[in-house]
Design a protein around this nucleic acid. Structure first.
Lengths: 249, 249
DNA sequence: CCTTTTTGTTTCTAATAGCGAACCACTGGT
DNA sequence: ACCAGTGGTTCGCTATTAGAAACAAAAAGG
């Protein structure tokens, strides 16, 4: 492990949506290190376009290089390209947005979004990480993970995101067991308030969960009696995507 | 400047669309450094999700963290969000794709794409960098740059991308002068073969070029007599976007 | 099936490269 | 005119890194 690189990558973490701009000394104070070091790291990052300095304020912010790398990442996963058309079709048929959530370690990552015509802005954006114990899109993945992995996730702590998040260990495990029986998940307001989710799992060639496909939107647009129809749509999509996935993995 | 970090960022450059996967020793040979060093860099990157190791092949590839950072980059530039609706409208009116190209140093960067219904795949994807001396979208930016900057771009070399790329210095400067007079640019097959482009410049509050707005597509769909109509559409979009830009910068 | 080669990973020590106090030049507020 | 703040620079001491050699494990080849 390289300490210099480690520090540098740690520095990047401080550039967030909430605080996208940092002065050299300001960031140094935040990180409890010398401003000289911060300056050197930023200067090096800048040569590669990972950060750039606003000429006016002299403050630094993330650079465009991330867009380049992100696009080659998405290219590697040509998955997205193959799956997107299917997602789009479901989005149009149900008039709700469809999400592809990928499993990455003990978290989920939103890899692709097919927006419905009636666009509503979610907290979710491509690349955002999610906790696996809350919300249909995540729980449906967690439900099919080996018990040991489930425990690991639970051990990391079940901090409720909303008042509907299941934060009791036993209740959660029961819920997961039921999801596994049903083969799909339905939740309302667990991850984001007033947002429903209907999700099905996706498996790799060797029967491991790798992702989930989710229909989500404002809860008032999906009363319980409309769920079966949406689920049917999702199920056929699941099979198509599954076929694509088998071919790759 | 930090050498360790410099080396590490240089390493990332080797993960391209064409070669997205690297073994440790393989990459070390390519970079002419010890495989031990490469291993350490990759291991450190992996802790932050910038690369990940495929368990089967043990080879490394770019990780999802880039998606996260890319999304916060795009968030900072809330520009995209404000401009996209306008682009989409033009795309639907003209039935061609619309591109937003941003100026970054001596290069252009494709920041946003509004696809037309009749989707054709381009070499262009969000985040991809372009040379400023070829193609309407780029030349219209270069035309409004100060002469010194233009020279700098020319000095870096005018390597033709297609047989229609202008590679003569004098011819290029003449062309740019004319574009500046007209206030817009039209080109066919300069950047990508058989692809036309109609572009207008976008200025910041202090009258500096910062970007361009472009309609592009297969050349057979845009005979010269159809250009004026497309241009009119683009012009009104230009004014709207300009208004948005003034408000920000 | 055993050998040979090649893989990712670990360990060690010389020597390079990074840290941080003190420094400068500049800006903006008082 | 001042002072407190900024970003950027210098330089010596020291901690960190590079790289040869060794490692286990897994392919490749006979």
């Amino acid at each position: 492990m390289l300490k210099t690189l480690d520090n540098a990558l740690d520095l990047l973490k401080h550039f967030t949506r909430e605080k996208p701009q940092w002065g050299v000394r300001e960031l140094a104070k935040e990180m409890n290190i010398s401003h000289t070091v911060v300056y050197r790291m930023l200067a090096t990052f800048e040569r590669y376009g990972f950060v750039k300095q606003e000429p006016k304020t002299k403050k630094y912010e993330l650079g465009f290089s991330f867009l380049e790398y992100a696009s080659t990442v998405k290219d590697n996963l040509d998955i997205t390209e193959l799956i997107y058309p299917v997602m789009k079709r479901v989005a149009e048929a149900t008039n709700e947005s469809v999400f592809l959530t990928w499993l990455d370690g003990l978290e989920g990552i939103c890899l692709e979004i097919a927006e419905s015509r009636q666009q509503v802005k979610y907290a979710m954006s491509i690349g955002s990480r999610t906790l696996l114990y809350a919300g249909a899109s995540n729980k449906v993945i967690m439900a099919y993970l080996p018990a040991s992995t489930q425990s690991a996730i639970i051990e990391k702590g079940l901090r409720p995101r909303t008042e509907h998040t299941i934060h009791d260990k036993e209740k959660l495990l029961q819920d997961l067991a039921r999801i596994r029986e049903d083969g799909w998940a339905y939740s309302v307001g667990e991850y984001t308030d007033t947002v429903f989710g209907i999700a099905v799992p996706l498996f790799s060639g060797d029967r491991q969960v790798v992702a989930s496909l989710t229909i989500a939107g404002p809860d008032y647009r999906m009363p319980e009696q409309k769920v079966p129809e949406a689920l049917r749509e999702l199920r056929t999509a699941q099979q198509e995507v599954q076929a694509i996935l088998q071919r790759i993995f």
